[in-house]
Amino acid sequence: MPQAHAIIGPTGVGKSAVAVALAREFTAPIVVADRIQCYLDLPITSARDDVGAGEGLQALTRLHLSQRSVADGDYPPEQAMRDLRMRLDELAEQHPFIVIEGGSISLLRLLAGCGEELGYRLTAHTVHIVDRRQYRSRLRDRAYQMLRADAPATGMLGELAAAWRHTEQRAFVASINGFEAVLEWCDDRGVDPLTLSTRSFTHAELDEIADLIAHWHVEHGYEQEQVFSRLFTDVPTAAGS
């Protein structure tokens, strides 16, 4: 029976690097179980392309669940789960081993509840937060890189400004991890989010925003850690066994 091995864990903990290494070892495709990474107009905010894979990434098959834009609105977990299962079913017909990479709480809850409904053997490995101080520092550095201090309009701030133009989707946009923090900063400073792509930022302001994004990401990461410690408790952890 084919095996689907899930690499799960909090935001920014290093899941992608683990998934890529495993995919190389077993010559396996990767399915990214992340709803926000399906939005083609949010590559920076979602870290869609930030896989940290190094040399040889082009030789790997790395598949997302769908292709969406902010104008499409929220991607419901139930729909994402149907798309995930369809991806896995198709791949299981061709590959003996599949890597699932993800940190979406809602989506992974649904996957963990599938049990024996799946036509392949599900195993899982959780990448944990080892050192909380280092984790916070890493997320802060990651947030600053997302802001692209040399050209903020091309980073997360530019993506938020463009997304905010979809007025009918603002509730969805405001719920996206990372955007929540920037919108909080905008509210405190009286800044219109629509101006984020054209506004000049001081280094002090970018530092403030990066700190706030890191804080939100860390809090979300701790929540993920707690939830994932309870998921897949009855699922084997060994890959390729």
Rank of each mutant, 00 (worst) to 15 (best):
A59G: 12
R82S: 13
A163S: 13
L122S: 05
H125T: 09
L88D: 12
Q94W: 07
D141N: 13
M81N: 09
H95I: 00
A124I: 01
L160G: 03
L108G: 10
M81P: 02
L107G: 06
L60I: 00
L63A: 13
R82E: 15
C114M: 15
R138L: 02
R132D: 11
L63I: 13
R165M: 08
G119H: 10
Q79L: 12
V70F: 04
D150H: 14
G103I: 05
C114N: 08
R85V: 14
R121K: 14
P77C: 03
A151M: 03
Y120I: 05
R142Y: 00
R68A: 08
R87Y: 07
G113W: 06
M146W: 09
G155P: 07
T154C: 06
S106T: 09
A124F: 02
H95P: 03
L91V: 06
R87F: 01
D131G: 00
D131T: 00
A80E: 03
R85A: 04
H166T: 01
H64D: 08
A149G: 02
R121Q: 15
E78V: 05
G102E: 04
R138T: 08
M156I: 12
H128V: 01
R138I: 00
Q67W: 03
E117K: 15
H166I: 00
P96Q: 13
D150R: 11
T123F: 13
P76D: 08
E159H: 04
P96E: 12
R82H: 12
I129D: 01
L84H: 07
R121H: 15
A112N: 15
E90W: 09
E117M: 09
S106Y: 08
E116R: 12
P152C: 12
P76K: 11
A124S: 13
A149T: 03
V130I: 09
G73A: 10
M81I: 00
V130M: 01
L157T: 03
T154K: 15
M146H: 14
T123W: 11
G119W: 05
